[in-house]
Design a protein around this nucleic acid. Structure first.
Lengths: 356, 356
DNA sequence: TTGTAGGCGTTATCAA
DNA sequence: TTGATAACGCCTACAA
């Protein structure tokens, strides 16, 4: 058998296999394998010989074969709605960092928030036998089939920013209700009364939490909830634009926009309508970015700890991969109000003066 | 042999293999394999039986095993400096789209522009036997060892936005010299004379091109090149900030900042120093983003076709994977000047008035 | 048209 | 401490 291998090898110039190394070092494949994996029991002489052969042939173990034999790929799948949405890059970066540190790599998938695409990718990741999946779930349940496949194949999943009604899995999220609440409370403190909401997709858990927080703050302040001031977007620019077109004519004092992309659309609409922030309306946006501080209006935001989100997601996953059997954990990270200039601070001063 | 498999299988609830399906459908593994791969020669009856078994068992082929047998993983590796740099997400998204469309998935790596990390990832990708690599090369050469491994393993690479001195490979890039030239020419048309440059890493090909374009435009206009007005950054925020601190005191009329992150740093420095754009200095930035149009100052930019970059990269790669043997191709996409308000148009009017 | 058996490159079991 | 050799799950000549 080794003979045949020889023939093939010497023909073209393929990547060397463990057999080539074994032959070169005049040892068995077992020994080579042992050296590759730093097993302690190999004699110094053989270690030297093997290492020399490895260097000479530029041998690199075929991780596919290894994965097949060991039933683990050291790969995690990460499916987000869209890496081009600026909310995700930092999260993905953090995940990749944490994964890399632990010897894992990440396969990136974009679902566009479509169930079909998500299903497709889930199938793919399962087929590729990834060791775990970070899932920014599309709204809706996970099919029974996929639940079964995931549990049969023992592939843990960590839910990112979105819970899934019928999937018991670890979750990493931010305290969105609190974030939205703090944002609206801040707006109210600054004197705003009629506050609009540009929310996310109706059935996405974090969008629901944000709406809760929004309403709660309103109620606590004794302000009425006007359904007409609530707009349901989809976290993309265009829906923010539509929201602006629909909401601004209603002349709200201020608005809470629940993600950056929609804020961009909203501001564009405002510009088109000749309305200015914060003069004509106050605004708090979700998500913070380094560039928000150096352009006008300087947005007041609810910062979400993106890096920690990604990092935590893979750490939860890694625990499961290493056999952690406890019940699902939920890690809730704290958002933070970052006050800048888009809330009509001047207006507050004005009111305060009035009161005095 | 199948017996042993049986024993194991019935014990736990592992993912089913092709053998399980064969047994369930009462056919041979060959037939199952044929059906899975839509071979035409299987009789309708057996196809039906196999499909039923597949559905019943929720069978999904183990792509690892398939890859090992077929010597192709249908995976491409993509190594960028940092996905958190807003320049990359759209490119990666485009690449993933194009890859997915062709049945490939993408493994994402961040090199941070460090040779060591790049080397690490290259080793990894080779070991994982990816079918191709999209590489946003760190400055410097590719080691001979890696060149040899890549060619031995027949792994094509497509260089993204950066050429590599000793690697003959397909390249996708933008016409950076033209982009920078157009930017500076625009600045000059607007009346600016002393124009500073915030450039990229000294040995990165696109940074060199951008500097060429900058100087060329200056020369064409008969303006002198002041080395003191050229700052070498690293495409990250902090270096843009340092650039602002160093350049602004020199009171240039305007500045060309060669990427968005550095522009953010530069603007921050300007704010700290109480200098305003475009009143105190004009600015053109590389890279365009949807949000630039709705915040002040509305940046005039050189837009780079990010989506096409990513798409083209994988298409070039796919061609190679499918056996294309021609000599390396270079695809150069055209950047586009997008005029907004950051160039001090008013100033031009002013100067014009003066001259009149 | 279908089945059998060997190979893909590792790891792992069991002797030696 | 080492060496044969059987898995791992799939593909694919070669036979039937």
């Amino acid at each position: 058998m080794p003979e045949k291998k020889n023939r093939k090898r010497s023909a073209g110039s393929k990547a060397p296999s463990i057999y080539d190394v074994a032959r070169e070092a005049k040892v068995s494949v077992f020994t080579v394998s042992a050296v590759i994996n730093n097993k302690t029991w190999v004699s110094a002489t053989l270690v030297r010989r093997v290492k020399a052969a490895v260097a000479k042939l530029n041998y690199r173990p075929n991780l596919l074969a290894r994965s097949l034999a060991k039933h683990q790929t050291h790969t995690i799948g990460m499916v987000v709605t869209d890496i081009a949405n600026p909310f995700f890059p930092a999260i993905v970066r953090a995940a990749e960092d944490a994964a890399q540190k632990a010897g894992y790599s990440v396969l990136l998938c974009n679902s566009d928030d479509k169930q079909e695409k998500e299903t497709l990718y889930l199938d793919l990741l399962i087929s590729k036998r990834v060791d775990g999946i970070i899932l920014n779930k599309t709204p809706g349940e996970l099919s029974a089939v996929h639940r079964k496949m995931l549990s049969d194949a023992q592939i843990p999943v960590a839910l990112l920013m979105r819970s899934c009604p019928n999937l018991k899995a670890d979750i990493v999220q931010t305290d969105d209700e609190k974030g939205a609440h703090d944002a609206v409370a801040h707006l109210i403190r600054n004197g705003h009364r009629r506050i609009a909401l540009v929310g996310g997709p109706e059935h996405v858990s974090n969008a629901i939490s944000r709406r809760h927080g929004y309403r709660k703050a309103l109620e606590e302040a004794g302000l009425s909830i006007e359904p007409a001031l609530e707009f349901h977007g989809d976290y993309r620019i265009d829906s923010g634009h539509r929201a602006g077109l629909a909401l601004l004519p209603l002349r709200p004092d201020a608005v809470l926009v629940t993600n950056y992309l929609m804020t961009v659309g909203f501001m564009t609409a405002a510009n088109e309508m000749g309305m200015r922030c914060p003069e004509d309306f106050g605004l708090v946006s979700f998500d913070d970015y380094p560039w928000l501080g150096c352009f006008t209006p300087r947005l007041t935001t609810i910062e979400l700890p993106k890096y920690e989100l990604g990092e935590t997601a893979v750490n939860l996953l890694l625990d499961r991969i290493q056999g952690e059997k406890g019940r699902p954990r939920t890690v809730t990270l704290q958002p933070q109000l970052r006050v800048r200039d888009s809330c009509g601070f001047l207006r507050v001063v004005h009111k305060a003066t009035t009161h005095a």
